[in-house]
Amino acid sequence: MPLQLQPNFHYADISKQQGLREHVAGDDFYQMLIDAHRDLSDEDSSKLNAKLILLLANHIGELDTLAQALSLAAGKKA
């Protein structure tokens, strides 16, 4: 599975998306992420990030896709 590099945020219930600007789901996720980190210590914020990465990596599952994501995140050519 190739790594999705185009915006891909969306609601599972498409009726929530109707009438909203295209990128609202991405904005909503960003707000959820900020809210999740609010009032956390640096250590707890790092733990939250690590847990989130592992949960999402498990959801993706495909090691070639994960390797590509790691390379891109590290600033290396994928």
Rank of each mutant, 00 (worst) to 15 (best):
P2I: 02
L3S: 00
L3N: 02
Q4V: 14
Q4P: 06
Q6T: 14
N8H: 13
F9G: 04
F9V: 02
Y11H: 05
A12S: 14
A12P: 03
D13R: 05
I14F: 14
Q17R: 07
Q18G: 04
Q18P: 00
G19Q: 01
L20P: 00
R21P: 07
E22V: 09
D28Q: 04
F29W: 12
Y30W: 11
Y30M: 15
Q31D: 12
Q31N: 10
M32R: 15
L33I: 12
L33M: 13
D35M: 08
H37I: 05
D39T: 12
L40N: 03
L40P: 02
D42Q: 11
D42M: 06
E43L: 11
D44R: 14
S46L: 09
K47D: 10
K47W: 05
N49D: 13
N49L: 14
K51A: 08
K51G: 07
K51T: 09
L52S: 06
I53M: 05
L54C: 13
L56S: 00
L56I: 03
N58R: 14
H59G: 01
L63P: 06
L66I: 12
Q68D: 13
A69G: 01
A69H: 01
S71Q: 09
L72I: 09
A73I: 06
A73T: 08
G75A: 02
K76Y: 06
K76R: 10
K76S: 06
K77V: 09
K77I: 10
A78F: 07
